[in-house]
Simulated scan of single mutants.
Amino acid sequence: MLQKNTDIPYQQLPFVGQFNIFPLLGFKTELTRQPHRHDHYQVVWFSKGSGQHIVDFVSYELEDNMLFLLEPGQVHQLLDDAKEGHVITFTEHFYFSNRHEQATMYDFTNLFDATRGYAPIRISNRTAATFQLLAELMYREKSASGSSRSIIKHYLNAFLLQAEREKKRNAAQAIAPLKGDERVVLLRRLLEKNFRAQHHVTFYASEFSLTPKRLNEITREKTGKTVTELLHDRLVLEAKRKLSFSHQSVKEISYELGFEDPAYFSRFFKNHAGIAPQDFRDVMFK
């Protein structure tokens, strides 16, 4: 169990340099079953899986050939019954080691971008076979004498491009896919940048030269939520992360998230999370 006097914001993986790949079957620690986060990008491919994988406090039922893409700072935990597959970890610096690569390499950050809503990716059998081949090539190059960063990077690049194709296929096969609107994607990115300081719809509407009413109409049509609801979701998620992974008091967290009145923040959190902030923290450390 987590200890209240121990600060463990990031899990220490068997991370060699700025890239690593390792089998899921052989990787199991007490910490994997507890909420934790990483300071690098992580690709978790369950070739066989059952149980639960919880990402940012949302539980997903594991299936065979399911892929999870995690950005730095995302919270997750594995409550699994069985799992096989591979984990790939890498830093942005590993992938983009110079300006030329930033201009010419595939921009994987869009693949990991959850602004359209986070969801695992279901992988077809054909793509799973390709993933297995690319994983074996990465293992082989990583363990070779004088292994090449460039070769590993190209194998990784091919893996991520295949993942992007599957992500698009998943979206196309959705029962009721929402029509895209680039303004909603930009709004989510704007929220991500400003949610701590800007709690009013008028700020975000002005960025699009729209009235608050019109921006709310757009977001409700595309996401089923108003701007305020999207903002509140992000504030609650960040509050949960802070309550789980910091020693800051509830009062300090409320100020950091832009609430001038800690008592109002506590009411806000309980209204949206169904539990008071301190009670949520106590449950996490139980």
Rank of each mutant, 00 (worst) to 15 (best):
A171N: 09
G224F: 11
P177V: 01
R189Y: 01
E164W: 07
F195N: 00
Y264A: 10
E221C: 07
K242H: 11
E217F: 06
K240I: 02
V236W: 03
P177S: 04
L257I: 11
H247Q: 13
D181C: 08
L186N: 12
R241T: 13
A163R: 00
V185P: 00
A239C: 08
F195H: 06
L230Q: 04
Y264I: 10
F195L: 05
A273F: 08
H154Y: 13
Q162S: 14
L190Y: 04
F265A: 02
E229N: 04
E256M: 07
S254I: 01
V250C: 12
K168D: 11
F259S: 06
F203I: 02
D233W: 03
Q198P: 02
A158Y: 14
L257M: 09
D233Y: 08
E229G: 01
D261W: 04
T226G: 12
R267L: 13
L237V: 03
E256H: 10
L243W: 08
F245L: 10
D261I: 12
E256N: 11
E256V: 03
F195C: 02
L190I: 06
R188C: 13
A171H: 06
Q162W: 11
L243C: 05
R234N: 13
S206D: 14
G180N: 10
R234A: 13
N194A: 02
F195D: 00
F159V: 02
F265M: 03
F259R: 02
P262I: 04
L231K: 01
E238P: 01
P212K: 03
K167H: 04
P277Y: 07
R234D: 14
R189A: 00
P212F: 10
F195S: 00
K242S: 12
Y204S: 02
E256S: 15
A273E: 15
E252P: 03
H247K: 12
K213D: 12
Q173H: 09
N170F: 06
H232A: 12
K179E: 14
D261V: 06
K213M: 14
I218T: 04
S209E: 12
I175A: 04
A172Q: 10
Y264K: 11
F159I: 03
E221S: 10
E217V: 07
R165Q: 13
A158F: 11
F268G: 05
V184R: 01
A171S: 07
T219I: 02
E252T: 13
L191K: 08
S244Q: 05
T223E: 10
S246L: 10
E260W: 05
Q162Y: 15
I175V: 09
F203A: 00
N170K: 04
Y255Q: 08
E260M: 11
E221L: 15
H232I: 03
L191D: 11
V227N: 01
L215N: 05
K222Y: 05
A273K: 03
E252A: 15
F159Q: 00
S244A: 11
Q248V: 00
